[in-house]
Design a protein around this nucleic acid. Structure first.
Length: 467
RNA sequence: GCUCCCAUCGUCUAGUGGUCCAGGACACCGGCCUCUCACGUCGGUAACAGGGGUUCGAACCCCCUUGGGAGCGCCA
């Protein structure tokens, strides 16, 4: 049987980082085994599901490159199927109507809690044959009360549950709509899911789902419950920890492969390797090797990985990825054409940028001449150095060829006469003059990329800032 | 409360009975490199939660304790 995995988020909010990791693991598992990966939207909670959330999930998955082979399927569009199975189960006696009111159930749970018992439905409607007038019944699954249900989990190993601990869960509400635990089971079954990879907060639901499947005569899939992701402080990950939505990471200039790499390594390792490219992730990832313990999100490491991926990416690709961020900084297509080759700029910037946002900001001055210098940098490096700028411009203007190496030699020669050979003394003023601030790629490279004409123009323009 | 899960440096992890006075990475602290900022590079600090077993031998196996987490909805 060919492997089939799925990612089944409910569209009640943005696609968060924990969800992305389970999606990644499912995707990777399917990819490595040549299987299929399905996307399913669990939108049975009409109250909280929104089309915006669905759109955000799809957008996030696409940005990450986690392509799905089928779907997205929507549970709200499968209601007829659920009702069909519900009717079958009712007829077969594996499910029954329950006429208990919410108040009655709450009172029962209260009593159980008072007795220090686990609150659970006691099955009082199991043998009721007469409807209660005026009460719309829910449908409950008839759960076995003896024996045990064993979950063979790929990550946790064998986990045993006493059936006596399982109560008769509600599988359809009074209004006839099916509930989560029921829909998942039917969907996974209908869609031929062979491996259910999901958060370990579902581990406790698994025996119930297995029981429903058995009642239906279906073979349960293989399960793998992945641990959750905690915030840096080991507390449940939430907004106060910073970005939790994937799309926020896009905004902040992270590469999807870096985010995926980070999430992959959170709870999984392949020896000492830290940086994984997509093909390696697919080749090496084994769901069986995922850790059992929850792990804390480490933003610094993500940042470091992002820098690694930025440096490893071919300049042409990187330039393409950078473009939207440059646009956001106000550079338009005409501006880009008028300036230096973006690949050259990217090449000069890539080892000092940790995010695409950093890089776009660092690239700005190549396309838009500074109209003024950063005040502190001007005061420190430019004030009173007008003569230096003039001589530098003169000197450089005579260069036969305008390349980084010849510029380097020329700058060194200039330093020899101006500052006893100390390049630092002249490089900073010149840098602030052409870049508008004290930080840029090496000056020789920067001038080479800017070109002769533009460099000289900027040096002359900066004379105004030396007063 | 009950059921289930989990436990190696601050963090992510390697490690599946001897090769571990525990290795790598991020972060941190020093040195080097250097025209700025970075990159890089060299070095350093830092962990097997505690207690019992099993064994010639335990980070690795078993039990208990402690600590964390999840679930116990007509939410998903």
């Amino acid at each position: 049987m060919t492997v089939c995995t799925r990612f089944a988020p409910s569209p009640t909010g943005y696609l968060h980082i924990g969800g992305v990791r389970t999606a990644l693991y499912s995707w990777l598992h399917a990819r490595r085994l040549g299987g299929r990966f399905i996307l399913r939207i669990e939108d049975t909670d009409l109250e909280r599901s929104t089309p915006e959330a669905t759109a955000a999930i799809l957008e996030g998955m696409e940005w990450l490159g986690l392509h799905w082979d089928a779907g997205p399927f929507y549970q709200t569009q499968r209601m007829d199927r659920y009702r069909e199975v519900l009717a079958q189960m009712l007829a077969a006696g594996t499910a029954y109507h329950c006429y208990c009111s919410k108040e009655e159930l709450e009172a029962m749970r209260e009593e159980q809690r008072a007795r220090k018992e686990k609150p659970r439905y006691d099955g009082r409607c199991r043998n009721r044959h007469e409807p209660r007038p005026g009460v719309q019944p829910v449908v409950r699954f008839r759960s076995p009360d003896q024996g045990e249900t064993v979950v063979e989990d790929l990550i946790h190993g064998t986990v045993r549950f006493q059936n006596a601990e399982l109560d008769d869960l509600i599988i359809a509400r009074a209004d006839g709509t099916p509930t989560y635990n029921f829909c998942v089971v039917i969907d996974d079954w209908d869609m031929g899911i062979t491996h259910v990879i999901r958060g370990d907060d579902h581990l406790n639901n698994t025996p119930r789902q297995i029981q429903i499947l058995r009642a239906l005569g279906a073979t349960p899939p293989v399960y793998a419950h992945v641990p959750m992701i905690l915030g840096p402080d080991k507390q449940k990950l939430s907004k106060r920890h910073g970005a939790v939505s994937v799309l926020e990471y896009r905004e902040q200039g992270y590469l999807p492969e870096a985010l995926l790499n980070f999430l992959l390594r959170l709870g999984w390792a392949h020896g000492d390797q830290e940086v994984f490219h997509m093909d390696e992730m697919i080749r090496y990832f084994r769901i069986e090797d995922v850790h059992k313990a929850a792990s804390a999100f480490n933003p610094e490491k993500l940042l470091w990985l992002n820098a690694q991926h930025i440096q490893a990416m071919p300049p042409a690709d990187l330039a393409q990825r950078l473009w939207p961020y440059l646009q956001r900084e106000g550079i338009d297509a005409a501006c880009l054409r008028a300036g230096p080759e973006l690949e050259q700029v990217v090449l000069a910037l890539r080892e000092r940028a940790k995010t695409l946002v950093d890089m776009a900001r660092g690239a700005l001055f190549f396309y838009r001449a500074p109209t003024e210098a950063v005040a502190a940098d001007r005061d420190k490096h430019l004030r009173g150095r007008g003569e230096l700028l003039r001589r530098a411009a003169e000197h450089l203007a005579e260069l036969p060829d305008w390349t980084a190496t010849s510029l380097h030699d020329a700058l060194q020669a200039l330093a020899d006469v101006e500052s006893e050979g100390k390049l630092g003394k002249i490089a900073q003023p010149l840098r602030v003059a052409v870049a508008g601030c004290a930080v840029s790629p090496p000056l020789d490279q920067t001038l080479a990329i800017l070109g002769r004409e533009e460099s000289l123009r900027r040096l002359r323009q900066a004379l105004a800032w030396t007063e």
